[in-house]
Design a protein around this nucleic acid. Structure first.
Lengths: 338, 338
DNA sequence: ATTTCATCGTCAATGCTTTTCCCTGTGCCT
DNA sequence: AGGCACAGGGAAAAGCATTGACGATGAAAT
């Protein structure tokens, strides 16, 4: 693999000139430029990006850390980031965190070692304090789908409380009084916020609601199945299920059917995220729309701006731009009861 | 951000010693080692990965290029690669190709510029010749989900012909004679191979089959919907649909229902890929299992081996290890007719 | 013909780490 | 005590490209 020196020698010029041609710099005459270009082509020269990155302080790539790409929600995040990157002709370095603290930390560290200036991180497991420290150290770091008060100007997040509220509101307005909530365990704050939101909403009505919160390990289709099985086995009474996400909701529906219960006739189900899955299934799933792709795009743009030292003035911070609002999408999986 | 020199100065040693500590090299006494480590911690030193990569020929990362992460099939690929990477403690540099030729090329080029030695590329748009050339140039490049005869020892692919054959076989054994095929357009070979496989299978029977092949642009849920709409509008007769993938199949089912046709009572539908989607929907989708995750893992391991110069002997090549076989998964979307 | 000034290029320093080669001191053997 | 092996450590080159300061060349201006 030829280096810049080889090209220079072959073209009878100095490495500096070659470098200037590579970077479309000035100070190289049209003729020389052509010649150098030709030789670069002939010798199949490819600049060593690592060597370039040593010198240039402005690494034109975005580092991102995500948990698990097989979760369509995270895939959508990735897609949002990609869209911004492609549009600005930037590269993405993706590092998968795999949902445990040490590998998430490791992922961030790797990104820092590569001197990426703009970082979009989606961390579910790292504690606030550590993240705050990272944020202080790295100006271009933005947290996606997480809200830490101390550095909220560096966060893009969903109003999970409002999301929980919407779910509860919809359900009780349809007359439901016995509600099962399928949450997920772990340190994840959004599950907690949503439940808080639900409870806060329910507290607004002068009715007594029967609530059962079930913490279910896996936020997946199978998780939804076992959650319902669990509920039924324990004889919990419920006419509505509020699920942590669409996958769980779909799993729940499937298991309810397996037990001869119809959705929405016997049990109403509400999902969360509004993934494509929610539209495909039968009955179409009533769910909460999560504008994660827009959020991801926003986070990316923010990270890029911050990494360039722009928009550092905290004065310009407005919650409206950083906190996204979920929306109720009514389809067919909820039925009014009396 | 401190450099190795800063650390060296602070510790009163030479950069060489610090480097040796970083890389767990020899020639540093226990006491000095401890001291250097301490100082590195205190000063929050992080080695510059780019500078490291200049010297070290063996870049311990895997470069991958994929098209669109929002397609669950590709997400599964990514996951397979990740699994291998995590297990070997390697990083992934992901570059999204976005399904057009120039950006796919660009993605590969970027990876080469970063001097990644092990490359897993999933390219749908680049022509054979270009890929063959890349393969020749880069020993550690492996093609995932694609078969190019000339470099098949560097490919991991699915036997699409067999997949098409399975679909056709199943359908005709259930008595169907009027078959609509929803394919996708583009240079993608797998669509073509599958159709070839279907036709070859049908040719084995002494019956005349009525086949309609519809090339539908988007391999998505919506694509499936418009495809069916198209078929119905043109008055094409069919009792079975063979779809290019599960998403199309699900879209097709939805549109059939919208026209008052029941699946599988009026029309049978077969998908492809066996994504989670296929299990969730109602009726559960009969489909072809695509072991893409295993394939991705295999491709990654192969790329790593090749990048280390191992397994270069073409003699050891066996098709069985490189070509994966799809399997029929019978669920509820196909019905016997007479 | 001489000065002036763009224009085109080169030299050498820079960025950060690794690695080769060489030096020093210590302990051990004879 | 002399010689040797060896562990611990340093100096400097190597690895690849960028960049700022400076030099040469030729044409235009006086």
């Amino acid at each position: 693999m030829p280096t810049i020196k080889d090209i220079a020698k072959a073209a009878g010029v100095s490495p500096a000139s070659v470098s200037r041609v590579i970077n479309n710099g000035p100070k190289v005459g049209a003729k020389t430029r052509e010649k150098i270009k030709r030789i670069m082509g002939e010798m199949e020269y490819q600049p060593n990006a690592n060597a370039q990155a040593i010198n240039v302080q402005n690494n034109a790539s975005i580092g991102i850390v995500l948990a698990d790409l097989t979760d369509p929600l995270f895939a959508k995040m990735a897609h949002g980031i990609e869209k911004v990157a492609a549009q600005k002709d930037l590269q993405i370095f993706l590092n998968s965190g795999a949902f445990d603290q040490t590998s998430e930390l490791n992922a961030i560290e790797v990104l820092l070692e590569h001197r990426y200036k703009a970082l979009v991180v989606h961390s579910a497991m790292i504690d606030d304090k550590t993240l705050i420290e990272f944020a202080r150290k790295v100006p271009g770091l933005v947290l996606l789908n997480r809200h830490i008060k101390e550095i909220e100007s560096r966060c893009i997040w969903l109003d999970d409380k409002a999301g929980g509220g919407l779910m509860a509101e919809h359900i009780v307005e349809q007359g439901h009084k016995k509600i099962a909530i399928i949450a997920v365990d772990g340190i994840q704050n959004n599950t907690r916020h949503r439940i808080e939101g639900m409870k806060a909403q329910l507290a607004k009505y002068p009715v007594h609601y029967q609530i059962e919160v079930l913490e279910q390990g896996a936020a997946t289709y199978e998780g939804g199945e076992v959650a319902v099985q669990n509920l039924l086995a324990r004889g919990v009474e419920f006419s509505a299920i509020l699920a942590y996400n669409d996958a769980i909701a779909v799993g729940a529906v499937s298991m309810l059917k397996a037990h001869g219960l119809s959705v929405p006739d016997d049990v109403s189900v509400v999902g969360f995220n509004n993934l494509i899955l929610a539209q495909c299934m039968k009955p179409k799933l009533t769910t909460i729309h999560n504008p994660i792709e827009e959020m991801a795009m926003k986070a990316t743009e923010l990270a890029l701006r911050l990494s360039k030292g722009e928009g550092t003035d905290v004065a310009s911070f407005s919650i409206e731009e950083h906190q996204y609002t979920p929306e109720l999408v009514i389809r067919q999986s909820v039925k009014r009861i009396d």
